[in-house]
Design a binder for these strands. Structure first.
Lengths: 137, 137
DNA sequence: GTTTGACCTAAAGTCGACTTGAGGTGATAT
DNA sequence: ATATCACCTCAAGTCGACTTTAGGTCAAAC
């Protein structure tokens, strides 16, 4: 299939597909003239990438987790990422509860509500901005 | 307290605090000469902002959810955001389960494992990249 | 055989969230 | 008095993840 079809079935613009290929996240199986050819399983690769992005992983992290050919995964790393997700899930849950409470609470300012204020201390000194600010060496 | 102290106790660089003030997320209570003065409750505002950021909200969204003085929250909006979090929590949970399974699974490629492949269809056509790509008019 | 339309590349631009840099101010310690 | 030094402003730079633009190629339809 050529890029237009991949784009249509995946919902991702062709420019993104080229970009992902350049980054090594997907692979085209060859060329017809100058046109890239993809084989069908790229659709699943892309679904996986979208899933990862949606979960907050950077393209680099996704590249580390899954190789472009779907082989040789790093089980250790996967478990680590799963643990990270667990942590994030807990934080999101607290936040969600805090929001629901704030919406229902009658305190004049949510900062005056003790229940809400407890929320402020959950993640502690968690200033982790968007996933992985750590720069690689 | 002046900006250095806020920075130290909040863990955020002074540049970020100036930036947040410029964006209207926090307020300085006055000046001593040219130096900003903050009062103590800014620390809690900042904790709230960090929490929101960590939950994936943009600064603009956070600004809409909580006013700089902590008053007049939009309960409707808060509930909507809580629902968004619920959705995200579910997605993250699926992803986490998928990762744990992939790490344990013995299929030659995770793309060949039916259990893993089911994961690929959870969020459907969910190409929402980083929170709120919607541009305001 | 030419026109079309989908594709190509390389480079530059965009957006959010900050950070960095250059040059300036002024309260406080000496 | 003056030297520090933490603060200030404004402009420009950075980073990730793309998108846009400009100009070019070429297989297939006419």
């Amino acid at each position: 299939m050529d890029i237009g079809e991949v784009s249509k079935t995946s919902g991702l613009p062709a420019s993104t597909l080229r970009y992902y290929e350049e980054k090594g996240l997907i692979r085209s199986s060859g060329r017809n003239g100058l046109r890239r050819l993809f084989d069908a399983d790229v659709i699943e690769q892309l679904a996986l990438i979208s899933l990862g992005r949606n979960a907050g992983f950077s393209l680099d992290e996704i590249g580390e987790m899954f190789t472009a050919d779907g082989l040789e995964i790093n089980r250790q790393l996967l478990l680590k990422k799963a643990d990270e997700l667990d942590k994030k899930i807990k934080e999101l849950t607290s936040m969600r509860n805090g929001l629901r409470h704030a919406a229902a609470c009658s305190a004049p300012s949510h900062l005056e509500c003790p229940k809400f204020r407890r929320l402020l201390h959950i993640a502690g000194k968690n200033h982790s901005r968007h996933p992985s600010k750590l720069k690689k060496k």
